[in-house]
Design a binder for these strands. Structure first.
Lengths: 133, 133
DNA sequence: CAGAATCCGACCCGATACTG
DNA sequence: CAGTATCGGGTCGGATTCTG
């Protein structure tokens, strides 16, 4: 044991999002990013092909969907299954890890959706009191 | 009453994030945005002053923190209490709604933090197979 | 201390065109 | 169908300066 002089204490929480340099921030941003969350949410209902996903996530461009899926696949949250047929067919589905994350994410999404009345009311009040600016 | 001609049917799911124009997307982005989530997470532990928050959320600039807090206050997730003293003292704390949202958010954050080993492994594998690219 | 205002570069992201 | 490549505007966001 070695009473080392003074444990610099890297902290036991090795992956603390609050720390600037932590890799978990990056993953969290993939998950909560503009399209990442919606993609995970859509895939939670089941496997989807590229364009099915594109239609489900209203407003996403091909480029962004592609980019988003690659990030999620790289992080091990989404599995990509490409069949070498013609026309090409590629299916996306959540991994076990992806499903766990998606559950938490959906809980958050539903919480926010369900609170929108309250949010809208709060906004109106805020804009009224200091909205005139 | 008033059989108005045809209810435009705003849909029963009045606030569906998957719909492009839904206001819940905006709020969700405030919550899950780069700094919004971290601010909510930090405030979950208790009321904080501006600069305390700034130190807790490592890497955020004054500008972004200020901007973030305003958005969250407007959405009714954060309460801002300014005391007219000198030097000025302003405390931020979660509202009831904010606390509910923060709970879901922290569940997600901890889930991601806890999965980072797995994520990092997945990344390494991904980069190896097609990383040469 | 708690911000507001301004400047300015980086990159996000959508539209378009092209490939297999 | 399932993407990639390229371009360009808009926004994000950091550094700095200023106020009360």
């Amino acid at each position: 044991m070695s009473g080392s002089i003074q444990e610099p204490v890297v902290e036991d929480c090795a992956f603390d999002v609050f720390a600037r340099a932590c890799p978990s921030r990056g993953t969290l941003e993939h998950v909560t990013g503009r399209w990442g969350g919606l993609a995970l949410g859509a895939l939670y209902e089941g496997s989807l092909r590229f364009n099915e996903l594109r239609r489900r996530v209203d407003g996403v461009s091909e480029k962004m969907l592609s980019q988003t899926l690659q990030a999620l696949e790289r992080d091990g949250l989404v599995h990509r299954e490409a069949q070498p047929v013609n026309p090409p067919r590629v299916d996306y589905e959540l991994t076990d890890l992806g499903r766990k994350v998606a559950e938490r994410l959906l809980a958050l999404i539903h919480c926010v959706e369900g609170a929108m009345d309250e949010v809208l009311t709060a906004r109106a009040r805020y804009d009224e009191t200091r909205g005139a600016r």
